Simulated assay, not measured.
Amino acid sequence: MLEFSVLGPLTLRRDGRALTVPTVMLRRVLAVLLARSGTPASVDLLIDELWGERPPRSARRTLSAYVSRLRKLLGDDDRVESSPGFYALCPRPGELDAEAFRQLTERAAQAHATGDRPAAAAAMRSALALWRGRAFDGQRDTALVERTAEGLEQLRLSTFEEYIDFKLDAGATGDLVGQLDAMIGEHPYRERLRGQRMLALYRGGNRADALETFRRTHHVLVQDLGVEPAVKLQQLHQRMLAGDPTLASSGVA
């Protein structure tokens, strides 16, 4: 069985053993094909992604050689399908972590839509656990891979925020702060994350730290972006200052 991992540094395994992709260009070919996973990519697109506006005259022949080397590395010629003018890398079910992540987020959305919040939270937790770092880390030097990675990371961020809301509604507090701090480190201007941190601290009995979170948020936004916090975050701050008793209850933010 092959395992393609892109939710972090690009890695490749066969039967549990790590495989070394030996050259920069071969890793780039693999990354681009995985970014188009299951969808045929035209030779022209691949050449543009690999070499930009000034490809070598031998680009088509060189690309064909890279595909041959990749097939040999994978140990299965059928994994990289070809048709006139196109190539496609087609991982099987369970082999690509990005696809597993998308499926779990879809499962979470379906469970949420039917009111099964525990199942939704469990699916989101499993989806988030697949991540090992930035998507396609170290291989984001082509436009297609960068767009794909950004899309995955936006889905991760929205899934994380929904998961934190679920946990807050369930009464969890202290164990969330460390998780929020890590994500805020990646997205320092994301006000929803900072509001969730404030709420987790406040409900955990750390009102002073919750208010300090707002003060630091205000400073960062004004200093770095020249903007004030959004009205919703300011209102949350005012409610904490006033000791609004409804903030202590789950489902209120």
Score class of each variant (00 low, 15 high):
residue 247 L to F: 01
residue 119 A to M: 05
residue 19 L to F: 06
residue 247 L to S: 01
residue 28 R to K: 15
residue 41 A to I: 05
residue 16 G to N: 07
residue 212 E to F: 06
residue 6 V to Y: 01
residue 173 T to G: 00
residue 90 C to V: 15
residue 12 L to V: 02
residue 3 E to I: 00
residue 22 P to K: 10
residue 16 G to M: 04
residue 136 F to P: 09
residue 3 E to P: 00
residue 142 T to Y: 05
residue 22 P to V: 10
residue 23 T to V: 07
residue 160 F to I: 13
residue 101 F to T: 00
residue 199 L to V: 14
residue 122 A to I: 05
residue 63 L to W: 03
residue 59 A to H: 09
residue 90 C to I: 12
residue 66 Y to D: 12
residue 29 V to D: 03
residue 31 A to N: 10
residue 147 R to K: 14
residue 12 L to C: 00
residue 56 P to N: 11
residue 105 T to L: 09
residue 158 S to F: 06
residue 164 I to P: 03
residue 169 D to H: 11
residue 116 D to I: 11
residue 200 A to W: 05
residue 151 G to E: 07
residue 50 L to H: 11
residue 182 A to S: 08
residue 49 E to R: 11
residue 211 L to D: 03
residue 234 Q to V: 15
residue 125 R to D: 11
residue 220 V to C: 07
residue 199 L to G: 05
residue 115 G to C: 08
residue 227 V to N: 02
residue 73 L to K: 12
residue 152 L to A: 04
residue 193 L to N: 12
residue 144 L to I: 11
residue 141 D to E: 09
residue 251 G to M: 01
residue 71 R to M: 04
residue 71 R to Q: 13
residue 153 E to Y: 07
residue 16 G to R: 07
residue 33 L to H: 10
residue 121 A to L: 10
residue 224 D to V: 13
residue 174 G to C: 01
residue 149 A to L: 03
residue 44 D to A: 15
residue 28 R to T: 13
residue 113 A to K: 14
residue 81 E to R: 13
residue 99 E to M: 03
residue 219 H to Q: 12
residue 252 V to N: 13
residue 53 E to H: 09
residue 181 D to V: 13
residue 151 G to W: 04
residue 173 T to K: 01
residue 69 R to S: 13
residue 94 G to M: 08
residue 195 G to F: 06
residue 235 Q to D: 12
residue 182 A to T: 07
residue 192 R to S: 08
residue 156 R to P: 03
residue 60 R to Q: 02
residue 7 L to M: 08
residue 38 G to Y: 09
residue 101 F to Y: 05
residue 172 A to P: 00
